[in-house]
Design a protein around this nucleic acid. Structure first.
Lengths: 133, 133
DNA sequence: ATTGCAATTGCAAATATTTGCGTTATCATT
DNA sequence: AATGATAACGCAAATATTTGCAATTGCAAT
């Protein structure tokens, strides 16, 4: 692992943007500082950061993967497949599962962000009630 | 939801192929029966099946998503980011987590396959030992 | 059997992501 | 400071995936 300037810029960017950014948004921001940077370099840099556990990558169901800096503790998301609502889940419960899996399999888990798809309470009700004519 | 011929063929295919197939492999198989089928139709059909919970989709770290029919109970995977080793995790432990999340958030979880990336025992040892010259 | 609505499909184009390869840059060692 | 190994990069091409829109088709109601 070497000191990559793109890695550094991405970390700085994601540190202040407490949000889910896709590769295109990240690419556009980086170009303000490194106008000649290539998209594939951004992808490779993001890969590295994810593998280091510094950044999380998730498919939230919007056509592109989104990235986020891992800070202030882990968290996870619940996404409604009907209405798109997104809930945040604290790491506490997930942590117990990860610990068990790490012990049983002697693995060091790097994945730090789960996205669980499902149906929210509201949409469940809609689906089970008779449709209106 | 309607009776889609492509959906049916995919289900039949995945029912006998107890394996992780990517969209290209699925597309090639379908063309044997439906030579004129379009790739986007395959993608949309897979989306539907995943949303219905009949099929699982996962990014196992190989440039494309892989699909699998949900049968004989759920299972999950642990993938080593160094050597690529893949371990299977039974649903039992994961189920407890899902139940808690469903109750707390009143969601019906549809996600039926987790892929957790990490470092296997072997690769952890390699990383921590002094490198050979 | 006919009709009408909405789901499914094909097609083409737009996006998103990965990969091979030659070049450049970083860093440890000398 | 010079050297060598290899990580990081740019570029272009290959893949993979999504999307808008018009045409087709399945299915429920008539």
């Amino acid at each position: 692992m070497r000191n990559s300037s793109v890695d550094k810029i991405i970390i700085e960017l994601l540190s202040k943007e407490h949000a889910h950014l896709n590769s295109q948004q990240i690419y556009n921001e980086i170009r303000k500082q490194l106008p000649a940077v290539n998209q594939s370099t951004v992808y490779r840099s993001l890969d590295r950061l994810v593998k280091q556990g510094l950044v999380s990558v998730s498919d939230m169901g919007t056509g592109s993967s989104v990235y986020e800096k891992v800070q202030d503790g882990y968290h996870h998301h619940l996404v409604c497949q009907k209405c798109g609502e997104i809930l945040t889940i604290e790491h506490q419960e997930v942590e117990k599962l990860f610990n068990v899996i790490e012990m049983k399999n002697r693995y060091k888990i790097i994945t730090n962000h789960l996205v669980l798809f499902g149906i929210c309470e509201h949409c469940q009700k809609i689906a089970s009630s008779p449709s209106v004519k």
